[in-house]
């Protein structure tokens, strides 16, 4: 049984890490489309999978956030990845099982997973 008091232990563990973080400009941003179209297409488990992978790998330079309708509803769930100094990469028709390879290849090793991108789908 979990107790809310455990949050204080998480807080104490994280305080030290937050100070070591890179400043806002150097962070990789992962943005998941969470409008009606995205949610209906299965964006919630995709977002969850990103949070799990980022936490598991302790990626302190990655921010996972949500946005509204990106505008290509038929290709949802859509995930945009912004690496500082590089062009935005748009992944389409995402599913939780594709997330691990995007995280390990793109976010960690810097290689775009071309087969999942909008360029490959269209």
């Amino acid at each position: 049984m979990k107790s809310l008091a455990e949050l204080q232990a998480i807080r104490d563990r994280m305080r030290g890490q937050i100070e070591l973080r890179e400043s806002g400009d150097d962070r990789i941003r992962v943005v998941v489309g969470m409008a009606t179209c995205g949610i209906a297409a299965g964006a919630r488990p995709v977002l969850n999978a990103f949070l799990e992978e980022v936490a598991k790998r302790q990626l302190k330079n990655v921010t996972v956030s949500q946005t509204g309708c990106i505008g290509v509803c038929r290709l949802e769930p859509i995930v945009e990845v912004y690496v500082p100094g590089q062009e935005k990469v748009t992944y389409v028709k995402m599913s939780p099982d594709k997330v691990a390879s995007v995280v390990s290849e793109h976010l960690v090793n810097g290689r775009v997973v071309t087969e999942y991108t909008i360029g490959a789908a269209e």
């Binding site: 994280m14 305080r15 949070l51 799990e52 936490a55 996972v64």
Partner: peptide
């Protein structure tokens, strides 16, 4: 419980 430094949005 989390205090001001740690955001609720942390994975």
């Amino acid at each position: 419980l989390l205090g001001p430094q740690v955001s609720l949005s942390e994975p």
